[in-house]
Design a protein around this nucleic acid. Sequence first.
RNA 1: GCCGGUGUGAUGGAAUUGGUAGACGUAGUGGACUCAAAAUCCACCGCCAGCGAUGGCGUACCGGUUCGAGUCCGGUCACCGGCACCA
Length: 905
Amino acid sequence: MQGVWKKSAGSNGEKRTKALQKGTIAYIIEKLLMRPVETARLPARRCMTILSMGSVITLKYEFTTIEKKWQKKWLEEKTYAAEEKSAKPKFYGLVEFPYPSGQGLHVGHPRPYTAMDIVARKKRMDGYNVLFPIGFDAFGLPTENYAIKNHVHPAKVTRDNIAHFTEQLKMLGFSFDWDRVVDTTDPAYYKWTQWIFLQLYKKGLAYKATMPVNWCTSCKCVLANEEVVEGVCERCGAPVIRKEKSQWMLKITAYAQRLIDDLDDLDFIERVKLQQKNWIGRSTGAEVVFKATTGDDIVVFTTRPDTLFGATYMVISPEHAFVKQWADRLTNLKEVEEYVAAAARKSDFERTELAADKEKTGVMLQGVRAVNPVNGREIPIFISDYVLATYGTGAIMAVPAHDTRDWAFAKKFGLEIIEVVSGGEDVQKAAFTAKDDTGILVNSGFLNGLTVKEAIPVITRWLEEQGIGHEQVNYKLRDWVFSRQRYWGEPIPMVWCDKCGWQPLSEDQLPLLLPDVESYEPTDDGESPLSKMTDWVNTTCPCCGGPARRETDTMPQWAGSSWYFLRYMDPHNDKALASKEALDYWSPVDWYNGGMEHTTLHLLYSRFWHKVLYDIGVVPTKEPYQKRTSHGMILGLNPHSFDNLSTEEQERLTAQYGGEKGARAHLVEQYGEMADHPIVKMSKSLGNVVNPDDVVKEYGADTMRMYIMFLGDFEKAAPWQTNAVKGCKRFLDRVWNLHEGQIAPGEGYSAANESAIHKAIKKVSDDIEAMKFNTAIAALMALVNDFYANGVNRADLKALLLMLSPFAPHIVEEMWEHLGFGVAGMACQQSWPVYDESKTVDAEVTIAVQVCGKMKTTIQAAADSEEEAVLAIAQADGKVAKAIEGKSLVKTIYVKNRLINLIVK
RNA sequence: GCCGGUGUGAUGGAAUUGGUAGACGUAGUGGACUCAAAAUCCACCGCCAGCGAUGGCGUACCGGUUCGAGUCCGGUCACCGGCACCA
């Protein structure tokens, strides 16, 4: 017991006052423990335990045994099951459920899970009825690919992976409610995913449209975006092109405005709100009609109607309907058609390449021109793929003087650039794009002299009066492509009848089960593997009863994850996706933590579905999640980086390549740009992935949990350093050792520790709420250091254990039991300790003394002292006196309990 | 290119939001204990000068506001993440 020994042994290395005689019980125990003991302070019961068992096992911090013991107990007693109904207030904490991949859990998973586990455990101790569930997002491509490669059914792969994940999650001691696990591939679950699809269809929010898909020219199959690597097929290396295919779409754009507006009332971190807003991309502008010389109206969308006088040409997208419509008038039809064909052939990769180059391409439509409605000037029309068919109207008016893309295009094709907003540099050299009040309209008739801001409403009103335009809002957000030509997904419950068209399955036919197929390989014609199951495909029309065919595409992985949090509220319900009572009680999710990478897809999709469910009266709240926070990634050491090589290796390379610079350049050449950085993402190919199992095996789950929370700011990316894990293990060892000897009884906190304990409770409570887990742990470490310095009584130790319990639950329960606190139930079932604000302030404070803003020294003063008193103490200080000697005091600035600044001349 | 974020010791990171820069860890150095090692305990640990008391410098860089700036403002550079011709 070091804390006790310190008193007799002294802090500066005095010899121990009492030498133990060889052969005594105390001597043997000391040898076994490998540290000093004092038998007088070791309870007789413990001595007997040691002797009767012939080992010190009950005294050592045997984390493996302890962790297994408590995990078993929690599971058997359903310690963390949420109560169906309760007088307590509710708290619903949610983490993103994992995709159960074959590799199992990696250290990226426990970071957010441990964080929310700590919050959930703290909330229980705060008296909440807590729902903290987990499940598996198990449909998806990797499982399907694994199944194809290894000839195992994806359902079996999924089952095995889920079993493995479950075991790993349990090993880390998360307080999940294991009775509420959901699995998106379970028919009892996806029945309701299909049901929601039918509701979307009935509301007119699901429709068929022709969309381009990635098509591998060699495998003759549709690829997901992630299967296309640098423009070629991941599997065979053949080029990937875009091919038109009829797909189910969900009309998320109908909810664009509400998805923006309703963010205001939510407690999401700003980054998330901003990213969603930018993704939805609302922009206000105007639609303007340009007459073509054919007599057709060309409608363009512009955010800068004020620059209308500067429009010197038009551009329409190669896919625009007018291109075909005007075919017989075009004198350069062949050239135009070639350009259209080339644009269609382009893969996304090539388009991106071109964008990076900023090299504009296009063809002028010879034989058709347009008229600028403000000044009657005839201007040429081009087709170019920098104008997207999918945004706005697929046609633009080009104002090269004030748009960088138009400017680049005009320069390349030698088109006229007319300045209509003054205030920038020469528009012949670069476009002037400022939208604020710095620019004044020129060369613009009735708009001359106005600022850009003033001109926009004036021109918009004029367009409306003329009947050739109006204000228009556009969104970047596009509708959600909902079909996948894949096996391992939810079947879409729709039937095609040649007579009646698309018909929804009736709800009592759900779930529409995914049939077993022989092969999950994609088909040669790009259809889903389900299309080969003729028995399944051929059915009868729900409308006329005639022969009909099922939809063979399946849903994307986003489907199941768009509503899973609702299922947790009532996971075994077979009458509804969840009962009304459960939805009313648990909605909304109070706190949802997840990765930033899900901000624009999963998070937005699920908000959209939830709003649809709200509109049809299924869920009680407009929004699914009240609060959203986000964690940073765990990074790994880069084994190819110079900084992470062994000293010998560094020396060898330095010698070989002429200095460190040469060696680094060599590594970059060999391994790519990534070799520049000592810290990189963890990835299998780099071999720097850390497996939580290994850490748990070597140090225990509690140490793993402590370290992953201690390694840095939760919201920021942080590198994993295995050697630093020890620090947390040492801390837990020190906590454990606190209870090995005798502890002073004490009902209240010991005088020496009282203030530190109150401060720690305040700090830890606040930090958990703010997700500053690293500083909360630092505060606990500091408290334990205090305990070692001051000694500790039972009440002190009890407070420490309660605070530590959310972080390191296993060791706490074990110590709690040893110390006899267990009669009141487990530590995790106790109330969170309270602090007394008045006891968090010290009677005496340290005050910094500055002279003319320069730090000179610190002084001690009674708390809340008045300025005069502090000034007197400061002036009496030798250093201060010396600094102000011979000068006169002009002014003092005093910050209570903190600082006094003497200004002298 | 645009949007967002970050830049602090050898190292991961703290800093009451404008008030003692480097808490708490890791690594390192010295010491105690040990036959020895491990473990544990004690002390030191930003840089420069000095035996020392002490003095000077220091939060990517340049400048500003302020009694006082890691924190606020202007500019520059570097890195990370997201989007990628959105009219």
